[in-house]
Write a protein that binds this DNA or RNA. Sequence first.
DNA 1: CTAAAAATCAAATAAACATTTTAAATTATA
DNA 2: TATAATTTAAAATGTTTATTTGATTTTTAG
Lengths: 210, 210
Amino acid sequence: MAKDTPQRLLDAALDVFAEQGYQAATIQEIVKRAGTNIAAINYHFRDKASFYAEVVLYGCEKQGVGQPDFLQAENDPEQQLYLFIQWFLQRGLRLGTASLMDQIHMQELANPSPVLDKVVEKLIRPVHLQLRQIIYALLPDNSEEQVIRFHCFSVIGQCNLYKIGKPVMTRLYPDMQLDEQCMQELAKHIYLVSLAGIQAQNQQSGNNHG
Amino acid sequence: MAKDTPQRLLDAALDVFAEQGYQAATIQEIVKRAGTNIAAINYHFRDKASFYAEVVLYGCEKQGVGQPDFLQAENDPEQQLYLFIQWFLQRGLRLGTASLMDQIHMQELANPSPVLDKVVEKLIRPVHLQLRQIIYALLPDNSEEQVIRFHCFSVIGQCNLYKIGKPVMTRLYPDMQLDEQCMQELAKHIYLVSLAGIQAQNQQSGNNHG
DNA sequence: CTAAAAATCAAATAAACATTTTAAATTATA
DNA sequence: TATAATTTAAAATGTTTATTTGATTTTTAG
């Protein structure tokens, strides 16, 4: 038929698995969207489980290229933090591979599978390490490991809620619209809170040591 | 057989649905744990979908009783905020109905169903309104609606990450153990960051108006 | 207290659905 | 043309949900 059935299967499956999760997704729906038939899955990818693993890996690689680097020397850590927050927030909102992988991430949080290990290593850890570097630069030199982690997770946690918690948020506040403008204000807000938190930490540490 | 089959079914189902989500959970597993057979589901609760709705409602009512009230007059808003964070964090860690409903919440975020509306109204909104009151008291009188919401979501977001993101966190930092002591330090951290964020907001608002 | 009616439960069966396998047909390629 | 790779349709397998049927228990009325 058309060209590159495996490719069409991967793309269709990424959509379906993101929308519905591994269990709820049926290979029937996937092959229907890919415009082929059921046996194609078995021929190109052994079975559903192996197929899912390949789909997620495919999504990781697709998103992996073109991840921005926030640790450019010309920016001070404050700027880097702001840019990170802005990027991280917007990623989930825009359509495309990134938001699909965010949905897969979500599905994996609800029902972890062996695939989660690779998602963490390929997508999450690299991003996390960048944030960690930024936070590290903003904290005193002798900061405890736990303090660094906590501040990272404070930033991530604030951002994540707007991806993960959307279904609840729209029910709590039906008038709330998470559009581009709101995202910008939100980025400023999270930056303000996070930086204030770090500075408060610095003061406290200073008192403890002085 | 034993007494009150519907009751045993509800309790067993709450476990299974929380663990696996609606799709992945099978009524076979549920009736097995409840010590009865499949027909009991169809007899007492029409079908799987209706049954799930009743299970979630049951969970809501079970947890709804005994929710603490943080708006006691004897505490100042700062104390209230700290107690709220501490309670909210610990709720997910401890075993019992609360953590089960957190898991259901999680499953509903990944794959929302009509039931989510009721979970929001019965469980989430009441808690959210309490936090909102606390935040409101900490902000200037003329604060914008959006600012209030953002600060609420900053607190919630930071706490939620440790419930929702646990599978990722343990992979990022295998040495991290979210035990009671860690929770206490975490509560202090989130309180520090959140309060510093609010105070920074107050300063900024003051500048804007003055 | 007893008989009829209703409610509850268990086992087997049926129906629906999903996945995997098989085998035949088609297409591409050497 | 012969061979291998791919696609298709159909059937087999397994799993899950829904229904039926008959037995047991409980309730209600006389």
